[in-house]
């Protein structure tokens, strides 16, 4: 992470208010060139509103925002020329073909025809849609549409790519294909900004992220740092029958750094899950199931807000 460089995106007390609610409440962050930066949080946390302000699609209510050194209020078109945007909901042009979507989009950027055609073919190759170049957009699967949307966002060779929940609603296979492509972009040095409510997505792709909840940033760091700071190394997940659960009070105390009782399972935060599990057994507490796993950002989020990410 080149921390000496001028940040690509700089937000200070950035605020977005609509008529009757505050979507983003005085958030500050920096994104460095070449970084993959994530906004993690549940629906309604203010991630999309933040992205829309960065993409110059929504005016800043208050605070300071600089995107590639420019002010969205006065230089929106110049900023947009250097951004690639993958919105939460696909907005491909359904009335023209796959390849025409890329060529037409290139025109909006004033990219000359021969260059646009070359890039369109390269990008279709990159997102593995060359065979569908002349297909109608409607005939594509959800994963293909997402890939085409990503290809379209790359047509102007953007310096910053904004991805708003790039894999929400896709099946696991389609998600992995997208992650793999985004990972390649990252290795080529692209600056990625993405929002997600999947912790595995954030852990896989983000160098650094902020956790948002109720319009505010509640934590910031690399996935590893956040887990170290807000969670233990491992988590023991236990399930009990309803009767056992009802009479559990106090029987688990002292076994873990922290215990979280969720409706369906009980989480014990501990440095060594196997040892804690042995201790549970020696206390003769009957279990339905037990699972030892590493801590994830989900645990961080639960610790910070008392709620799970996907509700």
């Amino acid at each position: 992470m080149p921390s000496t460089a001028e940040p690509f995106i700089r937000a200070r007390n950035l605020t977005k208010r609509f008529a009757n609610f505050t979507a983003v409440d005085s958030v500050s962050f920096d994104v460095q060139p070449g970084e993959a930066f994530g906004f993690l949080g549940p629906n309604g946390a203010g991630k999309t509103s933040t992205m829309r302000m960065i993409g110059c699609a929504s005016p800043v209510t208050e605070g300071e925002l600089h995107v590639i050194g420019m002010n969205p209020r006065t230089e929106a078109s110049r900023i947009k020329a250097r951004l690639g945007v993958v919105p939460q909901q696909d907005n491909l042009d359904a009335e023209i073909t796959v390849r025409e979507n890329l060529l037409m989009y290139a025109r909006y950027f004033d990219i000359p025809g021969p260059i646009a055609r070359r890039r369109a073919d390269e990008l279709l190759e990159f997102v593995q849609l060359s065979e569908r170049a002349n297909a109608e957009v409607e005939s594509l699967s959800g994963g293909m549409k997402r890939r085409l949307t990503i290809a379209r966002a790359l047509i102007n060779e953007p310096e910053v790519i904004l991805l708003d929940e790039p894999t929400t609603g896709l099946d696991p296979q389609a998600r992995h294909v997208i992650w793999e492509r985004l990972y390649r972009l990252k290795r080529r040095g692209a600056t990625l900004l993405l929002t997600t409510h999947y912790m595995d997505e954030a852990e896989q792709l983000c160098d650094r992220l902020v956790v948002m909840d109720k319009a505010k940033i509640v934590a910031e760091g690399s996935p590893r740092q956040l887990i170290e700071q807000y969670s233990t190394r491992e988590v023991l997940e236990l399930r009990f029958s309803d009767e056992v659960r009802a009479q559990l009070d106090g029987r688990l105390s002292g076994l873990a750094d922290r215990i979280e009782m969720l409706p369906d399972r009980t989480l014990l935060y501990t440095g060594d899950g196997e040892r804690t599990l042995e201790q549970v057994h020696t206390r003769n507490i009957p279990l339905e199931s037990a699972l030892v796993r590493r801590s994830t950002l989900e645990d961080v989020f639960l610790r910070l807000t008392g709620r799970t990410l996907v509700e």
């Binding site: 699609a57 110049r78 945007v85 919105p87 491909l92 989009y105 909006y108 950027f109």
Partner: peptide, 8 residues
């Protein structure tokens, strides 16, 4: 929405 994400 898609078009206004460009310099248009």
């Amino acid at each position: 929405e898609a078009i206004t994400a460009t310099p248009m």
